[in-house]
Amino acid sequence: MRRLKIYDDQDFPAYLPKLNNLYDDLFADGKGFRSALVQKVSKPLGLSDQLVLLLCQTIEFIHNASLLHDDLIDRSHLRRNKPAAWTKYTPEYAVLAGDYLLARVMVNLSSHGNVKLIQLTAQAISDLLEGEWIQDSLVRDFDISVEQLDRVHNLKTGSLFKWCLRGPFVAAELYDTEIHSLLDECGTILGLLFQRSDDLLDFDVRNYENKAVLGDLKSGYLNSFGVFLTRDLAPDVRQSAFRAQSLGELKSIITEAHFDSRLAAFDRMNVSLIELYEHQLERLRNLLPTQAKPIVDELLPLSKPLYWRKK
């Protein structure tokens, strides 16, 4: 998949101090997974290069705006192994730069003129913010369930994946309700798989990018694997586990065997989710117009590497 240059220097006013430097840092090492997803859906629909760029820019701007805000909310000092924007610049600049990206999204989309696309995008941003809001209110809640966390992740992570799948269809002015329901469903599943896989990184599982370990737990946030790992433990063991300062300490508290068996069960649950994703895509294939059917072949191979984090 061709890697698009998401923005030019002319996209942001040069007279605003630090803004372009902040964005250069922010966008430099992003994987661009969401814009790649947009391209996979856009190509078979025959969207123009200009429109595909607009869609990719939209999703990457929203995603990166959320990262700017997220890092500040979580007080995360690192983003992609570099100082987070709020530490390198200032918290005020980080907030404003995030807001500015969201504003640019609306300026760009309204210039394009598809009201339904603006509506879909505004809804995605709204869902994302709802998810952020609720997630922040769950800090130090160690009795949360996986189902409850799924609801947060559906808003926070799933909203952008859903947009990636539906946005190109709306841009192509294809509004079939049944197709959009299925795209929504597939986006939800991809979002959950991505989030659960990301949650595993915090426990150093398939952590090929060497991300910081146990950050969520130490900051008082029990992620989906954390819930899965600790929910059947005796209360005193659970309390000790929540206070663990390193993965080694955690494993010594809950035992390595327990960790491995819960990981295997977590993986099985998500393999089932992958099977559900594949089932829904086959249904989508039956509904799509002939020229759009290759979208299914583009989307089918995504779920496994997304969850298993194959290099």
Binding site: A265, R268, M269, S272, E275, L276, H279
Partner: peptide
């Protein structure tokens, strides 16, 4: 969306 984690065989789905 929590599917049962004890099932190991491939699942069969039907949508109506």
């Amino acid at each position: 969306m929590t599917l049962d984690s004890n099932v190991t065989t491939p699942r069969s789905f039907k949508t109506l």
